[in-house]
């Protein structure tokens, strides 16, 4: 390390190794992928984007992806809100027990979770066997290798990501606001609707956006629980490269996915401040 610091910024040297690694071996490769989507620097073309815009099967993939992720986000955020609410209002012991139940699946490998749902939901899986055995159904219900299975698996993955930021906001609320509302005669329900919900709405919205962004890039869960019949964007990109060797198309779809992700992250950071959201989760 140089004895004499750079003018006024003696700590710049601390940034450099990590910044060089991420710029050189991550951002530049990303830039090359973007260039590839435009046909490379030698012969720029928009043909891959035209293909994205004109191909029905790609439209269906995009539509499926947004439908599944949208539905998943709404369910995950509603469930996450309920869990966060209970956690914020429970006694300490019960809160810890509930926290444990949320944290263990949160840290569990995504492959283990997908495997568990596959075992539960397939045609000869536990749920169908139990229903068949009880005589409630005559033939196995199609619970997996379809959108239902993907949504179940993704909701299961994403609920904890909704719980933590919402819980952090709920803990930070000033309880006297609600007491004031109650003391001037508002019913508990009215207090919730008029005071509590508006105060926690930004966190709810922020968590929803984060969950949506995260879900948009999902690969493992849809690939395993969709079983090749429900193909979401990430898996389609992978198929384009590995099976049909259409690199230009895959690159263009990657750019579409990346731009959507960055746009949503920009909204999240305007709503809540991205540092706080990331720090809270």
């Amino acid at each position: 390390m140089a004895k004499r610091p750079l003018s006024g910024e003696p700590y710049v040297g601390f940034l450099l190794p990590a910044a060089l690694l991420v710029c050189g071996l991550f951002l530049i490769p990303i830039g090359q992928l973007v260039a590839l989507s435009f046909g490379g620097l030698d012969a720029p073309t928009l043909r891959w984007y035209e293909q994205v815009a004109a191909t029905d099967s790609i439209h269906r993939i995009l539509l499926t992806t947004f439908r599944i992720v949208g539905l998943t986000t709404v369910i995950a955020v509603v469930l996450g809100y309920a869990v966060a609410y209970a956690m914020a209002h429970m006694g300490e012991r019960q809160r810890l027990a509930l926290l444990l139940c949320v944290l263990v699946p949160f840290w569990l490998s995504v492959l283990v979770r997908a495997l568990a749902w596959l075992i539960l939901l397939r045609n000869n899986g536990i749920v169908n066997e139990a229903l068949l055995g009880s005589g409630l159904i005559a033939a196995p219900l199609p619970l997996v290798r379809n959108e239902l299975g993907v949504v179940i698996g993704m909701v299961h993955y994403l609920v904890p990501y909704a719980v933590f930021p919402i819980f952090a906001t709920m803990r930070g609320l000033d309880g006297r606001l609600m007491m004031a509302a109650r003391s001037v005669g508002a019913s508990p329900f009215r207090t919730f609707i008029d005071i509590y919900l508006p105060l926690t709405l930004p966190a709810l919205f922020g968590a929803g956006l984060l969950v949506f962004v995260f879900g948009l890039g999902f690969f493992v869960t849809p690939a395993i629980l969709g079983g090749g019949r429900v193909v979401m964007l990430s898996e389609y990109v992978s198929i384009s490269v590995l099976q049909t060797l259409r690199w230009g198309l895959a690159a263009a779809l990657s750019v579409v996915l990346l731009v959507a992700t960055l746009a949503l992250i920009a909204i999240v950071s305007r709503v809540t401040g991205v540092r706080r959201m990331l720090g809270a989760s």
Binding site: V22, L27, P29, Q32, G217, F219, S238, A250
Partner: peptide
């Protein structure tokens, strides 16, 4: 500026990072 750059590998969709790193 540097903070935003450093968060990129976490925020970018895994498949996008995968394709970019594969080629590189």
């Amino acid at each position: 500026l540097v903070g935003a750059i450093m968060l990129a590998p976490m925020i970018f969709p895994p498949i996008v990072s995968a394709l970019a790193l594969y080629r590189a």
